[in-house]
């Protein structure tokens, strides 16, 4: 469906992709879109590769995004961007966190963390690289890395008409709302 837009969030279990998917989809629903979102639970939670797929538009059928279909690929971890790159529309945008989490085979020294991932992606698609970990750390909350990336996503997708700060407040614990909003703003700025 031509009017449907596709957002693919990928990362590693435990990085908070699910919360971003939740904030994103609830904001899109408020804005009046038909929204479908798909995520995979279960074994993926134990440090595996995870994806969260959000599709929105006038009418959405499939809850999953096909290869070459994502308008934006937001990768919370550097190498994961490369794993999922075939899902990105060649005309789409990649937002990649400059943050490496070595997987089990890498930790054991069975293989190496791939070099030049960011360069490869930049050479293939319109790419924004963000050091969300550093930004979140500067704000005093390394865990808000996911919301920094969410800010970058909103900016890159041009979804700035929605009152995201209100949506964030509704979806996070009250005592973390302010840090998360700061993280969101920092992510928006960083993606210019």
């Amino acid at each position: 469906m031509a009017d449907v837009r596709n957002i693919l969030l990928v990362g590693v279990g435990g990085q908070g992709t699910i919360l971003v998917g939740k904030i994103l989809s609830s904001g899109l629903v408020k804005a009046g879109y038909d929204v479908k979102m798909s995520e995979v639970h279960g074994m993926a939670q134990r440090g595996g590769s995870v994806s969260n797929q959000v599709r929105f538009g006038k009418k959405v059928y499939s809850p999953i995004i096909g290869k070459g279909q994502a308008d934006i690929l937001v990768s919370f971890e550097t190498m994961e961007a490369l794993r999922w790159l075939e899902y990105l529309n060649p005309q789409g945008k990649a937002v990649v966190n400059d943050y490496r989490i070595p997987s089990a085979p890498i930790l054991m020294g069975k293989c190496d963390y791939p070099e030049g991932v960011l360069e490869t992606i930049k050479g293939k698609a319109s790419t924004t690289v963000i050091n969300a970990g550093e930004i979140a750390e500067k704000l005093g909350n390394p865990k808000a890395m996911n919301i920094v990336l969410f800010g970058a996503l909103v900016k890159s997708m041009g979804l700035t008409d929605i009152d995201w700060e209100a949506v964030i407040r509704e979806n996070v614990k009250a005592n973390t709302a302010e840090t998360n909003i700061q993280a969101f703003r920092a992510g928006m700025e960083a993606s210019i």
Binding site: M79, R83, A104, Y113, K124
Partner: peptide
């Protein structure tokens, strides 16, 4: 659909642990 052409073989596995 057309897809981005790249070498995915450099990506290390990430099994659950």
């Amino acid at each position: 659909r057309p897809v981005i052409d790249y070498d995915p073989s450099v990506v290390a596995n990430r099994p659950p642990t």
